[in-house]
Design a protein around this nucleic acid. Sequence first.
DNA 1: TGCGTCAAAAATATCGATATTCATTGACAA
DNA 2: TTGTCAATGAATATCGATATTTTTGACGCA
Lengths: 223, 223
Amino acid sequence: MNVMQNAEGKESSATRSAYVSLREMILTGKLAAGEKLKIEQLRTMLDTGASPVREALSLLTSDMLVERLDQRGFRAAPANLANFQEILGLRCALEDMALRKSIARADSEWEEQLVLVHHRMKRASDQNDIPTFEAAHKAFHMALLSNADSPILIRYCGQLYDLNIRYRYLAAAGTDYRKRDVGAEHDEILDAAVRGDADKASGALINHYRLTGEYLTVPLSEL
Amino acid sequence: MNVMQNAEGKESSATRSAYVSLREMILTGKLAAGEKLKIEQLRTMLDTGASPVREALSLLTSDMLVERLDQRGFRAAPANLANFQEILGLRCALEDMALRKSIARADSEWEEQLVLVHHRMKRASDQNDIPTFEAAHKAFHMALLSNADSPILIRYCGQLYDLNIRYRYLAAAGTDYRKRDVGAEHDEILDAAVRGDADKASGALINHYRLTGEYLTVPLSEL
DNA sequence: TGCGTCAAAAATATCGATATTCATTGACAA
DNA sequence: TTGTCAATGAATATCGATATTTTTGACGCA
């Protein structure tokens, strides 16, 4: 029936496929914040049944990207400045915590992984390969935290990272990262982390977020 | 069809009803940690259809009370000491943050709410009304944080609170809160919060958790 | 003109049935 | 004896259809 088109190595179940697609559409704004999400509409969009769509929406509810309205279906989570700033503040607090734990447990394997992921991100940036960069950027930030040995904390950080993506798209139609030396900021974080300097690394990371936050706050202030 | 048995003011949709029931069963251990959750089994248990059960399990996945296994259904989230300790540590960190924010924005309305909720908890405790106490206890702790004006943070704290409940049941078959003066600890937190003494309140709160943590760690160490 | 009521239309939530996938067992071959 | 593989038996994931709300809009009445 659904079988799963395991073509190039994509998704396995219809539900997961719908989840990934819907998530992408919400993050990039193809499904606007606050928009009503009608099952039938999405069903035809994704060319799948109602059950996978419903279940995918349920899953997105966990990610705070979709809201469930009592008996009246779903809608994309609303976006507003207060929400953006809460996300920013929590990211600073939680990632600071996670990064420090990661560094406290540093080992050579983790450091190597960091360098590798950073390199991939830089390469994608140099080549202006935006989609690859997007993925690599998340991978870099999550790799920084990955050694914290705290799955719930990592989960929360990942959720907040994703929530923030949407605001980047809202603020700049997808192409943010303009000329402000983001690369140098990443380098600084990486260096400090590899050196095991938790204060420096955390400071650089938080500064990175605060700067991004300031960039985004202006265009978002009309929300 | 499902209509919703709005009898005494219970649940409205079959999904929500299933969600509440399953959540209760997992928290109290009626569905054991790590146990495979078969749709058919739960369907008959709850006397409802497969769709609401599936959807409820999806929702519980967000709460980290249920895990989804690739194509092989669901199981109750495993429990182990590391998980318990992570929850404990995160609770201390996140509730500290939330409580301080709450106190920083204190107003008389919030203070009154605190006193009220605390009173209800105490009354339930005096009357040995365990179920009411359980609910009131959560209400008290969430009320402490409720003024933080940070919905995501509150959400996380609530999730962690619930995750912890399960370990209380695992450790003591439901009846914890033995003679250690939990009431006095709560009083201390309340007093400091109402006085606006953030350091004292946060310290008392964290101490409350650490003490509980120590109580539970021993019986849980076999996990 | 404004408002409340009620019926029609749309959308959701749920059920029952079916196709698929996973797990198990037993036979067969090495 | 042991390992592989096919057939069988669960269990899941998904579909299509139906019952239940919710929403819309028209109508009548004040």
